[in-house]
Amino acid sequence: MKTRDLAYVALFAALTAVLGLLPAIPVSALPVPITAQTLGVMLAGAVLGAKRGFLALLLFLVLVAVGLPVLAGGRGGLSVFVGPSAGFLYSWPLGALVTGLLVELLWRRLNLVTALVATVVGGIGVVYAVGIPFISLYSDAPLSAAATGSLVFVPGDLVKAVIAAVLAVAVRRAYPVIERPRQEATRP
């Protein structure tokens, strides 16, 4: 991995931490707040690609684990990895990975619609698929109740997905961080 790649990884881990400075919004029906940090997940995957996006969020979780208060509400430490919101934390590197894989797959056709598909599938679909079962497990609620209760997150997450898609397309045009897929060798 090049120095530039390490700098991108660190930058997006820091961006996710900065998004944690925005106050968390408590949800009365669930023990998990609404935060802006999933925007960092979507942006890391959409702008950096699968590998670097995954590493950026993995680095972020390492910072959380060592006790830095970089989660929304100033939380950090090992205790956040056990509880109703733990699944969402575990899902962040995977969400960035899937978002990045989709962006790389759709690179030649990347536009606002395809970038939005990537951010919704990776940044919402994957995050919910991992996070919701943890809500159910730690709150002793049926999985269906946890899934229904999580619908409150959808409008805000869709707004974050649109923001991430718009920024990813703009960055791709102005300063493409993800390199173009190699062209097939031309035949004589």
Rank of each mutant, 00 (worst) to 15 (best):
M1N: 04
D5I: 04
D5E: 15
L6Q: 15
L6I: 14
V9F: 00
A10C: 11
L11F: 12
A13I: 03
A14Q: 08
A17I: 01
V18L: 06
V18I: 13
G20M: 04
P23Y: 10
I25K: 09
V27Y: 01
L30W: 04
L30H: 04
T35H: 03
Q37L: 00
A44N: 14
G45A: 10
V47S: 10
L48G: 09
L48A: 05
G49T: 09
K51W: 13
R52I: 04
G53K: 07
L55E: 15
L55V: 06
A56M: 15
L58F: 05
F60G: 06
V66N: 02
L68A: 12
G73V: 00
G73E: 10
G74M: 09
L78Y: 03
V80D: 10
F81Q: 03
G87C: 00
F88M: 06
F88A: 02
Y90I: 13
S91L: 05
P93R: 11
L94E: 06
L94W: 01
G95F: 12
L97N: 13
L97Q: 12
V98H: 10
T99N: 07
G100P: 14
L102I: 10
R108M: 02
L110G: 03
L110I: 00
N111P: 04
N111W: 03
V113F: 01
A115D: 09
A118H: 07
G123P: 08
G125W: 08
I132V: 15
P133W: 12
S139K: 02
L143P: 01
S144C: 03
A147P: 05
L151M: 11
V154S: 02
K160C: 07
I163S: 03
A165Y: 02
V166L: 09
A168C: 06
V169N: 12
A170Y: 13
R172M: 12
R173F: 05
E179G: 02
R182H: 11
R182K: 11
A185L: 15
T186V: 02
R187Q: 14
R187K: 13
R187A: 08
